Simulated assay, not measured.
Amino acid sequence: MAPHSNFLRWGAFGFASAALVACDATQAPLAVKTPPARPSVQAETQLQPTSEKSAALRSYLVQVQSAQLSQGLLREDGGGADTPFTADMLARNFERIVFFNEYDTALRGRGGESPLRRWSAPVRVGTIFGNSIPPSQRNADGTAIRNYARRLSQITGHPIMSFGAPNFIVIVASEDDRGAALDAAAARVPGISRESLNALRNLSRDTYCAVAAYAAGSDANTYTAAVAVIRAENPGLLRLSCIHEEMAQALGLANDSDARPSIFNDDDEFALLTQHDELLLKMLYDPRLSPGMSAAEAAPIARTIALELTTGPS
């Protein structure tokens, strides 16, 4: 199955370790006072014409979305009576998604086991739009990103905001301007080099989106920065599904599995974050767990949290 969403996890000190997460063509707050919305960071100010390569990719991805919808994929309901899960299933899925990497740093092979990693400092989300993206799409995607950041903050209890100097850049760019947007992100976010973003420059046709998360501080298990790339050629629902998956994965849900109902599953049954996925995020940012824990160390705590979230405290 071809990758459709990639997650790349870079370690501290020269970005020594990594894991990348991508998406598939055969499937698919803490209370924070929010100031008035600020303009998105732009890679350029003038629109550029679309190349034949970008136009062909857009046509292909429109067909992909149409085929997925005709097969009952890309669900937006978050799961229901047909997708029950137990506390044991939730704990097992948490282990598979948090403690393993989907890809290596070059997007060529599977990643290995990993300790628990997440953010400690507030996450400040900014956007960069390629210079071929029309204002209507910039407005729609910018609103979706800001709203989703607010939702993720409410779910995790971790401060995730859309103002201040960004340490998490979401790029929406086409084949024609992704390179320039990546250069702009590297120049804007401390702890990210131009070279460390090379894996995001040449994506396969079946990769709809990707994200790289960085631990560039003293703790290799604490994220300090992230860059997500969303193909602008994706039609509306595919583009929104990429926003949902990449922003959530950059918080520490690094792997895909057979979890259901979940967006962390290569079958693309679900387009948008599900109830199950919200619980995974709550578990990840529960203070009883901490960065650096191994799967074995976290397992008994994760089972307790999963039971509480599905049945209530004992």
Rank of each mutant, 00 (worst) to 15 (best):
I133G: 04
E175H: 08
I169R: 11
E175C: 05
P159Y: 03
S174T: 15
G157K: 11
R194D: 15
R146M: 09
P166H: 12
I155F: 04
G142W: 08
D141M: 10
A140Q: 14
I169D: 15
A144L: 03
P135Y: 09
S153P: 10
E175N: 11
I145H: 08
I160N: 11
T143C: 03
M161G: 12
D141L: 13
D183C: 01
R188P: 00
A173P: 10
L182P: 08
S136G: 14
L152W: 04
I145Y: 03
A187C: 05
G142F: 13
G142C: 03
S153N: 06
G191K: 01
T156R: 02
A181Q: 05
N139Q: 15
S174D: 14
S136N: 08
F163T: 14
D183L: 04
S174V: 04
I155C: 09
G164P: 06
N139C: 07
P134Q: 10
R138F: 11
R138E: 15
S136C: 06
P166N: 08
A165R: 13
D141K: 00
D177R: 03
Y148K: 06
A173Q: 14
L152Q: 03
A185N: 01
I169Y: 15
P134W: 05
S174E: 06
G191V: 07
S193A: 10
D183K: 01
R151N: 05
R178G: 01
F168W: 11
I171P: 14
R194M: 12
N167Q: 09
S162G: 15
D176W: 11
I192S: 06
A181R: 04
A180R: 05
A184Q: 06
G157C: 12
A181C: 02
A149V: 05
S162P: 05
R188Y: 07
A149P: 06
T156E: 11
S153Y: 07
T156P: 02
N167V: 14
D176H: 13
L152R: 03
V172E: 13
G179P: 03
I192K: 06
I145V: 15
I192G: 02
S193K: 06
F163Y: 08
S193L: 04
S153R: 00
L182R: 01
S136Y: 12
F168S: 14
A173L: 09
S193D: 13
G191A: 09
R188D: 01
R151G: 04
D177Q: 10
A180T: 01
N147G: 14
R138H: 13
Q154R: 10
S153A: 13
G142S: 03
R188F: 02
G191W: 07
M161W: 00
